[in-house]
């Protein structure tokens, strides 16, 4: 492969020839690249995709700022710790995402998704008004709610503001609209019928025990009912029964304590205050928390149900 010492190697000629071929290849590459991004191709662009009133470019900035690619893949690139997000909007829909993202540490329940649909803008984007219609339109959301709802997820809670959540959803709406040439491949079978889909043992146990408990206890006290409501409606995704802060403040020891508000004033967390927070969460913003993260439950819970939830919170505060 080499010219022997002392022989003429014609190195200069060979270098020039190699460079000429390389130049030709560079031309091919540049031509292919130029064609790839022509408008006539009809590829989705983020500046043209809106979700509610934010555009997908802002969402891309949020996506990068939280280094989402460090755990997930997008168009298949990134880390393999969590699932690919390219087509998630198409599969799970905006209401599920809106329920999941603010409290990513736990999977949204039926009630949590339903709550998001109360927002007219979200319902309009989803193209479904009721939870039934929504779950039918987005089967991946139905599967997630049924199999994972209320359980802890493996994603940490991120300090996403309400606006950032909307921007992220806009970005995912854009990636779903992208033409990725048939990737990821569409499965030909229903994976849920395979043994690989068997829930982890602890979950099976929990699911098997849960109905037995509810049938055994016939009359339910207000506190117990409140606890159930808190779980069903996704309150527990953000509020721990202890003092721990998940997304919102923990409920342990909250009742009767003095809460400092963002404007510097303070208020005692009594029945009236807690009821007010559930109905109009942004009326009195607590110091260290952002407005707009907690949704209002006014349309979802009636007065008695709210009283029960407050009773549950009261029971956690009596220590």
């Amino acid at each position: 492969m080499s010219c022997k010492p002392g022989e003429l190697c014609y190195e200069g000629v060979k270098r020039r020839r190699a460079l000429a071929v390389l130049g030709l290849m560079a031309l091919i590459f540049v031509a292919l690249s130029a064609v790839s991004f022509l408008d006539s191709r009809g590829q989705a662009v983020p500046s043209a995709v809106d979700y509610v009133d934010v555009d997908a470019v802002a969402g891309k900035r949020v996506f990068q700022a939280y280094n989402c690619m460090g755990c997930h893949t997008i168009v298949g690139n990134g880390a393999y710790f969590g699932p690919d997000l390219t087509k998630l909007y198409d599969h799970a829909g905006p209401a599920w995402l809106a329920a999941f993202l603010p409290s990513a540490g736990s999977w949204p329940t039926n009630g949590a998704v339903k709550l998001q649909l109360q927002d007219k803008a979200v319902a309009a984007e989803a193209g479904a008004d009721t939870i039934e219609a929504y779950l039918e339109k987005y089967p991946a959301a139905a599967e997630r709610v049924a199999r994972r709802g209320g359980q802890t997820s493996h994603m940490p809670n991120l300090p996403l503001s309400r606006q950032e959540v909307q921007q992220l959803i806009a970005f995912l709406k854009y990636t779903s609209a992208m033409n990725t040439e048939g990737w990821p491949p569409v499965p030909k079978v229903d994976g849920l019928t395979f043994p690989q889909a068997t829930p982890i043992p602890a979950t099976v146990q929990k699911a098997a025990l849960a109905p037995a408990e509810t049938t055994a206890v016939a009359p339910v006290s207000a506190t117990e009912h409140g606890a159930e409501l808190a779980e069903e409606n996704g309150c527990t995704a953000c509020h721990a029964p202890t003092k721990e802060k998940l997304v919102g403040p923990g409920w342990g020891g909250l009742y009767g304590s003095t809460v400092t508000l963002a404007d510097g004033s303070s208020v005692v967390a009594d029945d009236a205050y807690l009821t007010e927070k559930i109905l109009k969460p942004d009326a009195q913003v607590v110091e260290g928390y952002e407005a707009g993260v907690m949704p209002s439950f006014a349309e979802l819970l009636d007065a008695e149900q709210i009283a029960n939830v407050v009773a549950y919170i009261r029971s956690l505060g009596e220590n």
Partner: peptide, 9 residues
């Protein structure tokens, strides 16, 4: 192939 996307489960 099976389309299961629950990484934890």
């Amino acid at each position: 192939t099976l389309g299961l996307d629950w990484f934890g489960g």
